[in-house]
Computed example of a mutant assay.
Amino acid sequence: MIRKISRSMAALVALLFVGACVTVNIYFPAAEVSKTADQIVEDVYAAPEGENAAPQGVPPSSSLARMLASLVSPAVAHAQQETTVSNAAIRGLKDQIAQNHQQLVPFYNSGNVGIAADGSLALRNNDGLSVQQVASVQRIIAADNAARRNLYAEVAKALNTTETGRVQAVFARTWRDKAQSGWWIQEDNGAWRQK
């Protein structure tokens, strides 16, 4: 009987030890990510039309060059709140997204382009667009979505977290929350609605 109790106790202690070893509290800097998302999305949405904007439907030919230049040039000191994150790569990606945004504003306004539940952009419909415009808008959307994925990875890296998916989720909510009235956003359940 004592052997049975001691085996049971040993098994219980082993289970508790394994459970304690497996329980890992991974820190996710939610406040910093949220503050960074707020600042970046506000900057992108507030970029004045015409500044850095290429003609409608034409991708900027020098956006890659500007992004590369921002990566190798000395960092400009920016007054930031303590909880925002920025570096040359993040600023370059933000600028690229802002340029894409300016080209896409007419398509947001017409309802052709919407902000998906995951924060990416989507061509909702091609009503009123020529075949060339559809192709051009799709190229801009693809470039913008790639820049957004890279931005989330850079923000995660700057905050020393590997949880890029959680960073993207925070940004997705922010892109949709700060979208202008009249733009189309996709709800978490997949339904599209005009804001």
Score class of each variant (00 low, 15 high):
Gln133Lys: 05
Gly128Asn: 01
Val85Gly: 07
Thr164Val: 15
Phe171Asp: 00
Ala98Asn: 04
Tyr27Ile: 08
Gln133Met: 12
Asn145Ile: 03
Phe107Glu: 11
Ile2Trp: 10
Val131Ser: 14
Ala191Gln: 14
Val44Ala: 07
Val134Ala: 12
Ser110Val: 00
Leu64Trp: 11
Ser136His: 03
Ala146Gly: 10
Arg66Asn: 14
Ile40Leu: 14
Ser73Asn: 13
Leu64Ser: 09
Gln102Asn: 14
Gly111Thr: 02
Thr162Pro: 05
Pro48Val: 08
Trp192Asp: 00
Val72Arg: 12
Val155Trp: 05
Val72Ser: 15
Ala31Trp: 04
Gly128Ala: 01
Asn112Arg: 03
Glu82Thr: 08
Tyr45Pro: 10
Glu187Ala: 10
Gln132Met: 09
Lys178Trp: 11
Ala54Pro: 04
Ser6Tyr: 11
Arg7Asn: 11
Ser34Ala: 15
Glu187Pro: 00
Gly114Asn: 04
Cys21His: 01
Val105Tyr: 03
Ser130His: 09
Asn150Arg: 11
Ala77Phe: 14
Asp118Ala: 00
Ala54His: 02
Ser86Asp: 13
Ser130Pro: 09
Thr161Arg: 07
Ile90Gln: 05
Glu163Asn: 09
Gln180Ser: 12
Pro74His: 13
Lys4His: 12
Glu187Thr: 11
Arg91Met: 14
Glu154Ile: 08
Val105Asn: 02
Gln103Ser: 12
Trp192Gln: 07
Ala179Phe: 13
Pro60Phe: 04
Ala172Pro: 01
Ala191Trp: 04
Trp192Met: 07
Val24Leu: 11
Arg148Tyr: 05
Glu49Trp: 10
Glu82Pro: 08
Glu163Gly: 01
Ala14Pro: 00
Gly92Trp: 06
Ala79His: 06
Ala54Met: 02
Glu42Cys: 05
Thr36Trp: 09
Gln138His: 05
Lys178Tyr: 07
Asp43Phe: 11
Gln168Tyr: 00
Ala14Ile: 02
Trp184Pro: 01
Glu82Asn: 13
Thr174Gln: 04
Leu104Met: 11
Asn150Ser: 08
Val44Arg: 08
Arg124Gln: 10
Leu12Ser: 06
Ser6Ala: 11
Arg139Phe: 10
Arg66Tyr: 15
Gln132Glu: 14
Ser70Asp: 14
Leu16Trp: 01
Ala10Cys: 07
Leu123Tyr: 09
Val44Pro: 08
Gly19Ser: 11
Ala169Asn: 06
Arg148Thr: 00
Ala69Met: 12
Asp38Glu: 12
Asn100Val: 04
Tyr45Asp: 07
Gly128Ile: 02
His78Thr: 13
Gln80Leu: 15
Phe107Asn: 06
Val18Gly: 00
